[in-house]
């Protein structure tokens, strides 16, 4: 009988360990994506290094936008395309309008395509670092300051920056209730 007991103990430990492992997969996956730039994950804290290189290399940056779950928002880039010099900071902005009759809280999630080169696209300032509060009918300009890294490989011509805007009003009011 002691053999059976020790088998059960060991196996139960494996079960617990595998359950814990499923949660461990979350940070493992995140770290993995950050290191490799998979999924177009860009930096989510401001980039501060400002070493401008005077190289004559230009790339086209295209801007696109999405609104998640048909939230009552107008959300578009002010310009859809810029030709930028690598190593030089640029400013642009997105325009958001609240089409609903109540105040909304929003947050944007960025993504860069091709994902492999997301690490070369640095955001110095971005509305995606914060959440937004927007009143009914209000129009807001949401600024982005970015720099394309000098080390960008030569074979890249276009970079696409995409934002998906989420309405998180309900999540916020729920967490306030708790």
């Amino acid at each position: 009988m002691s053999g059976i007991k020790s088998t059960i103990t060991k196996l139960s430990l494996v079960v617990v360990a595998m359950y814990a492992f499923s949660y461990a997969l979350v940070p493992i996956y995140d770290t993995f994506c950050e290191i490799t730039g998979l999924n177009g994950k860009t930096n989510d804290v401001a980039y501060t290094d400002n070493d401008i290189n005077k190289e004559d290399r230009f790339v086209k940056v295209k801007f696109i936008s999405n609104v998640a779950n048909s939230a009552p928002l107008y959300f578009e880039p002010s310009v859809t395309e810029m030709t930028v010099q690598v190593g030089k900071p640029y400013n642009t902005h997105y325009v958001m309008k609240n089409n609903s009759s109540r105040q909304l809280h929003t947050t944007a999630s960025p993504s860069v395509t091709p994902g492999k080169y997301a690490e070369y696209f640095k955001k110095i300032e971005c509305f995606c670092f914060n959440q937004q509060t927007i009143n009914s009918g209000e129009v807001k300009d949401l600024g982005v300051q970015f720099i394309v890294d000098n080390d960008l490989p030569d074979n890249i011509g276009d970079i696409v920056l995409s934002y998906t805007m989420f309405d998180i009003t309900n999540n916020i009011s729920e967490s306030n209730k708790l």
């Binding site: 196996l11 494996v14 079960v15 617990v16 595998m18 359950y19 499923s22 997969l25």
Partner: peptide
């Protein structure tokens, strides 16, 4: 034993 706990986690 190795796979089912991962489903439970997910």
């Amino acid at each position: 034993i190795a796979a089912m706990p991962v489903l439970a986690g997910a």
